[in-house]
Every structure is written in C-alpha cells, then in structure tokens.
Design a binder for these strands. Structure first.
Lengths: 161, 161
DNA sequence: GTGATATTGTATACATATAAACTAATTGGG
DNA sequence: CCCAATTAGTTTATATGTATACAATATCAC
C-alpha cells in the first residue's frame, strides 16, 4: 500500500525527497510502536529493554556502563538518562554503583532480576525481529543499510543554518 | 562509518536482522533531531510544522482537519492531539472551530499568523530535505521506499503475541 | 600548586507520546 | 421512538525526549 493511503491522506506528496524521508520516519515509528506493544506485554518498555541489552553486550571492565556512555549509545541527552535509570532502579532492573576511581561517575549495572526479565523477552523479541526483517532477503538488507548509512552521512554534512 | 562506530559500541551486533532494524531507527532519529534543530531556529517544533503542513495540504471541504483526522495522519493517539493543539492555539498558529453539523467535532484551522511562519520555514526546509535525500539518486530513492514499504507490510502481518 | 576549563550527573521547565477512564454527542437496531 | 453502541475530544497518570543551569569532581596549563 502507498504511504499516502496508509496515512489516509487526501492529496499526494509534493516532493519525492520529502516522501522518501517520511518513509524512513513512518517505518521506524511503526516498528517502534509494535516493539513497544510487545515489551509492555513483558512488563518492560522498549527503552528499558535497550538499556539492558547495552548493559549485557557493551559493558567494559567496570562490569557496567556510565550514564554518559548509555546516553551516547542511545543517541539521547544525558539528562534523560537520570530519570530513566531512576525508574529502572525503582523497578529493580538495574543499580547505580559509585566509581571509586572517579567520583563523578555512576556505573549502571543490571540486576539478576533485570537479567531474568530481559532474557525472557529477548528470546521472543529476536524471533519477531527476524520475522519482520525476513520481508527482505539478505542482499536486500545489505542494500537497505547501505542506503540508510549514506543518508545519515549526508545529514551530518548538512548545516542547520 | 559503521553503525557500531557511530554509536560508540564496543562489540558487534549479534544478529543481522536486529542491526538492519536499528539502521532504520537511528536514521529516522538522526533526521528528526536535525529537523528539530532547524525548526527551533524558526520558533516551531517539528510536530507543529507537520500539523500545519497537513492543514494546508490535506484539508477537506470544511477548510481544516478534525483532531482525529490529524491523529491518524500523524500516527499518534488522539489524546496527544488535545495538548498539542492547546499549545498551538496559545501560540496563535491554529484555531479550533466547532462543526455545526456534528457537535462532537473540532475543526482545526491554520491562522494567517501560522501560515506566515509555516511558509517562511517550509521554503528552507524543502531545500534541506532535497539536499539530504540527494545522497541517493532517484532510482535509489525508489528502491529505498520500496524496501521500507515491504518492511512495514511485514510488521502489519506479525502478531504481537 | 593553583586557577581556568572540562566532564558527570542532577534539577527544572517544557514538548511529545501512550493507556485508560471519562463526558458529550451521534447513530443504528429493535 | 428509545436504548445500546460508537465516536470525538478531554483528563489523568506515566514514560520519554529536549535545553539550560547548576554542583561536584577531575584535569590541564602555567
């Protein structure tokens, strides 16, 4: 189905470039909504799941990640991580541990409870993601990621003003 | 640059399907952040700009759109539109007009002030979008939208449970 | 060593998103 | 005609995002 019809628009898009960009937006939004629905059934949010995935797969020697490391990996402002980790600590999914070498840092670590919830959701989640991306054959997935990478590089090169 | 390096990850992604999906997420996020920065310089938000674009290009006979029509075209919950239009009305960008035929409806219309701000931003915005999407040749843009459309169709077909 | 500079995390104000429960208004079946 | 079901919009509680300003801490230049 054409994007125009998916969104219930009366009139066509005026510019192909704009339409292409909206395809990227709305595909991401749709996938995220579906994922959110899935995670809610597991008592998590997509963002909380992402934090735990990063803690389990990207931790360094400290056995966790600092809040700034998390914010960079998630492409969000570090101010946002404060309340996110507050909620996750309250839900006993993660803990903040003070770094003895540099007292500015909090090292965020996943708890046994968090890891248990994560692993339960992750198994099914990866099945779902594989099912969704099976819409494209492997060479097509490579084309998609290559095209999107070129778009991101172009975004970086365009000034705001 | 590989997505792994863009995000500052220490370890590779475990599954190609998941990595492909993250490419979609992060490209959308990056474009949206850039757009947001742009609109802020024009005293607008990306969402407010989108509302005004829909009002100017997709309005029906009534000369505007109802809140539910807006929520469907923007793929958001209708509860969200209430406060969004509240803020836009306060900023004199739009007005709510009662529908005489069906008193349940608010018809949202753009004001002269809103249209002026919109047109000023839109001209530059479309230049920026064209510049960003010039990363891809026209046939490549068609491939991209086709691949993304197939992903969205697959998402629709996958059950949450 | 010390003072300027940079970095981390937090606090605040605000914008945007959801779900769920509610009111008001319309519609449709018997 | 009337009552049940539906629809539009709002309210509330909650999660996530931004920018900005701040305190605490660490680092760097001299």
């Amino acid at each position: 189905m054409a994007l125009k019809d998916e969104l219930g628009l009366r009139n066509d898009f005026k510019a192909r470039a704009h339409e292409s960009l909206l395809h990227i937006y709305y595909t991401a939004a749709k996938a995220q909504k579906k994922a959110d629905e899935f995670f809610r059934a597991h008592g998590l949010t997509d963002v909380q799941f992402n934090v735990m995935m990063l803690l389990l797969n990207q931790s360094g020697e400290s056995g966790g990640l600092t809040q700034v490391e998390l914010s960079r990996m998630m492409l969000v402002n570090r101010a946002n991580i404060t309340t996110l980790i507050d909620r996750m600590e309250k839900a006993r999914l993660v803990v903040r541990v003070a770094d003895p070498d540099d007292r500015r840092y909090n090292i965020v670590k996943i708890t046994a409870h968090g890891e248990k919830l994560y692993r339960k959701a992750a198994a099914v989640y990866h099945q779902k993601v594989t099912a969704i991306m099976s819409a494209l054959k492997e060479p097509e997935q490579r084309v998609l990621t290559s095209l999107l990478t070129r778009v991101r590089e172009k975004i970086d090169s365009i000034p705001i003003v």
